[in-house]
Design a binder for these strands. Structure first.
Lengths: 210, 210
DNA sequence: TCAATACGAAACGCACCCGTATCGTAAATT
DNA sequence: AATTTACGATACGGGTGCGTTTCGTATTGA
């Protein structure tokens, strides 16, 4: 497999590039536990400030050494932790614009309970303090998803399901924003009705005017 | 005026209720500076965790004593600071639904640069850690504004400007969410086009479908 | 003038966290 | 078996913030 190895390899000789370094290999289990703990704390402790290496280590059941061996500091750890939120990118079925939009909207909805939405929310609010982190997050996580929805709408214009003069860049945040607001507008223990996604998409498609 | 006085008064005698307590009165100037510093830090330091009493005191040019004399702890201070964000509640002109919605949407837009939006964003993300704070914020700041927009839409249904079967509770977060997403989707130094509010409202009114 | 209170500054003990170093032990290659 | 590296645990010096206390000074009413 020859995966991983962020360790310094410096393959100076003509050896095979896949040479496994000597000594005990790093524990994948520990690495995963660290990432999980980081994401948990990011949500529970309300942002980057609430994540301390000591707390991550304690929660992951890991020594601080094990963290510092992999990441130089908190920021780097959080960047890597957020990167794991990227996948999976939703793939529209392509049967109809309405169905695809509902599926995408539902992906936001199902993100509730999941950590994803909370992480994003907590971090995006901190662009004043951590601009590069937020930029990375927008580029790697948010924008790809916007691009998917953008594709759906563009295809809709071609098939005639969407009016050709639609301002797509306004429509995107309208649907995403409506879902996010609904999701975040409630207390963590409340439940959202099952058909929010349908209602949002149908309202958006139909418009407010008579 | 007989305003303020959170000090313990215990007017046991038959004296006038407005009796001013003896000694040097508390400085209004200091109080305002403290609130301002708190709000600033709430934005710049990305949330409740970033607000430390020591930092507030330093920024406000005030001794810690002066803060602890007024508030028992950080949470209470933040609650009071947020309360000052309540006013002013936007008042729709009532000429047309479109105009009113645009005015309301623009209020979000103009909140950019202002601290308001950033404060809300930062704090709402922390409902896991500070549920009571978030609840208060929603009740005192957000819900009144939703109610205004709700009123506009209801009136629109009566006048025929809005279709009578509209799901108002979906329409609200659609417009508000679209504005928020647009505002927060950009870097702090970028500028939003002047007509975002119009475009959002018009897109919402018209709908996506042909 | 006197008593009462607020002010800013400084220091307190306590707790948390940083990033590093040092343990003895565990798991790989040779 | 010997070597190499990772592991968790623990301790370190240094920093920051908490909430309290103690200063000397300033500002009010009586």
């Amino acid at each position: 497999m020859c995966e991983t190895v962020s360790r310094d390899v410096t393959e100076t000789t003509t050896e095979q590039l896949c040479a496994r370094p000597p000594g005990r290999p790093r524990s994948e289990r520990a690495e995963k536990a660290i990432i999980e703990a980081t994401l948990d704390l990011l949500v529970e402790e309300a942002g980057v400030a609430g994540v301390s290496i000591e707390a991550v280590a304690a929660r992951a059941g890991v020594g601080k050494t094990t963290i510092y061996r992999r990441w130089p500091n908190k920021e780097a750890l959080i960047v890597d932790a957020l990167a794991t939120l990227k996948a999976p990118l939703p793939e529209p079925a392509g049967r109809s614009v309405r169905e695809d939009l509902i599926a995408l909207a539902r992906a936001v909805h199902s993100g509730r309970g999941d950590r994803r939405v909370d992480c994003l929310w907590n971090i995006i609010g901190s662009w004043h303090k951590h601009p590069e982190l937020v930029r990375k997050l927008r580029r790697d996580v948010i924008e790809p998803r916007r691009e998917v929805m953008r594709g759906v709408l563009r295809r809709g214009i071609e098939t005639g399901e969407v009016r050709p003069d639609l301002d797509i860049e306004v429509a995107l945040p309208m649907i995403a924003g409506a879902m996010t607001m609904q999701v975040q507008g409630l207390a963590p223990d409340e439940d959202l009705p099952d058909d929010v996604a349908e209602r949002v998409v149908d309202t958006a498609l139909r418009g407010l005017a008579p």
